[in-house]
Amino acid sequence: MSNVDARIARILAVGTRVAVTLLATGSILMIVEGTSPLDQGWPPLDVGSLPADLVALQPAAFLWLGLIATIATPLLRVVASTWSFGRAGERRMAALGATVLVVIALAVVAGLGAG
């Protein structure tokens, strides 16, 4: 197995563990708090208040952070692959990775613009 594959596999494994741990923590807090997911709306994602809400053990904060970690994990894989191909001088593959990241950036713009 190449070092790159090993590095990317490690990123995916650690990212998944972190994401699932955060989601599980948020879910347990939500259940302990007695919140019923289907009975109410959900609090909006406010990145600025996440640290304080995490300290206050707010279930939604752990869940939002878990969702962000979930989505970020495969994107980190693309960043790591692109960087590795770039360093190895494989410009065409690095350009493909960079194109995927541009599409992801467009998704962020589209989501924020329409939100």
Binding site: L12, V20, L23, A24, G26, S27, M30, I31, T35, P37, L38, Q40, W42, P44, L45, P59, A60, F62, L63, W64, G66, L67, T70, I71, T73, P74, L75, R77, V78, V100, V103, I104, A107, V108, A110, G111, L112, A114, G115
Partner: peptide, 26 residues
């Protein structure tokens, strides 16, 4: 993962993902 992440970002930022349902289900 990357494919779903591209659309999940749009869903997330447009308020289309309920964290209370997504957490326990995932």
């Amino acid at each position: 993962g990357v494919t779903a992440a591209a659309s999940a970002i749009v869903y997330l930022l447009r308020g289309g993902i309920d964290p209370y349902i997504a957490g326990p289900t995932a």
